[in-house]
Write a protein that binds this DNA or RNA. Structure first.
Lengths: 152, 152
DNA sequence: CAATATCCGACTTCTTCGGTCCGGGTTTAG
DNA sequence: CTAAACCCGGACCGAAGAAGTCGGATATTG
């Protein structure tokens, strides 16, 4: 259905929270989970993934927790989603760079791959910092198209 | 994982196939399914949805089948996906225009809604006709960003 | 009437997501 | 030193949604 997972949502929320609390040395998974009312153990696993991807630094022991490894401006939403949910592809049949062998006549993906690139580009242009700004950020695209939802 | 369903893929493929065969009055679901090697009954249900959405015209009985209700240039990929998979939202918590009541502190969706708009805009700018063109179409974006996949 | 289609809901199967549990290893406070 | 607080990571399970099947009803043509 073309929506990102809750885990990715949680990850973005957690990074945003960390970005908004730069004065603290580190925040535990439980702290962040309580702040948003999300299951702590689940958030913990997400933060572990982000740590393994190099987006976070972790510190065990008492008063330990997580902290951003870079400036919030240098972390893109794409990196977060990618490290949590893995590489995403719009089309269901694409695996790697090869076309789908199963359905040889699937000539759909060629133009859809360009859509995929566009989405990835938008996600890469958004930083964690942008999520905290309640005013309009630098802008994901040159021109913010005024689109209307078709709530059927 | 931010990918569209197989049903949407099938729908796009079927419309593309219809667009490439304008000389025929109507094609049955089985004809299209056989051409792509996808289950006929499943494709039939998808085409029914597209008919109810007004993208296709159906004709029962012998020599019946489906035909595009408009020019292929006038049907966007957005309409197809929307009518098959329903309205899509990037964020998992958004329902309608209201914010998520469950997690009151979810301030993430505001910027992500803009991403949602961008994606919808790209999908709307792509027509069925564009899928058939093997050359570069009008172009979903001004500049085709040369992005590289991070196959982890 | 008979053959060929669409039409449409119910049903099964399969995968993935969301979430939990538990047994580790580390660091710090007392 | 010991215990508390924290991170680490695999195993596990239920729920939800996707993919696909089945069966019957209706419409159209020859």
């Amino acid at each position: 259905m073309l929506k990102l997972t809750k885990k990715a949502d949680y990850g973005l929320m957690a990074l945003k929270y960390l970005a908004e609390h730069p004065e603290t040395v580190a925040l535990s998974a439980k702290d962040i989970a309580d702040a948003y009312g999300i299951p702590a153990q689940l958030l913990a696993k997400i933060l572990q993934k982000l740590t393994k991807s190099g987006l976070l630094k972790s510190h065990a022991g008492m008063n330990g927790g997580y902290a951003l490894s870079r400036d919030a401006r240098e972390i893109s939403a794409y990196e977060v989603i990618h490290s949590i949910d893995g590489p995403f592809f719009i089309t269901s049949c694409t695996k790697g760079s090869k076309g789908c062998e199963l359905t040889p006549s699937c000539t759909i993906k060629e133009p859809l791959a360009r859509v995929n690139d566009t989405i990835a580009g938008v996600l890469k242009s958004i930083s964690i910092q942008d999520l905290s700004d309640h005013e309009h950020p630098a802008g994901p695209t040159e021109k913010s198209s005024p689109l209307v939802y078709l709530t059927h």
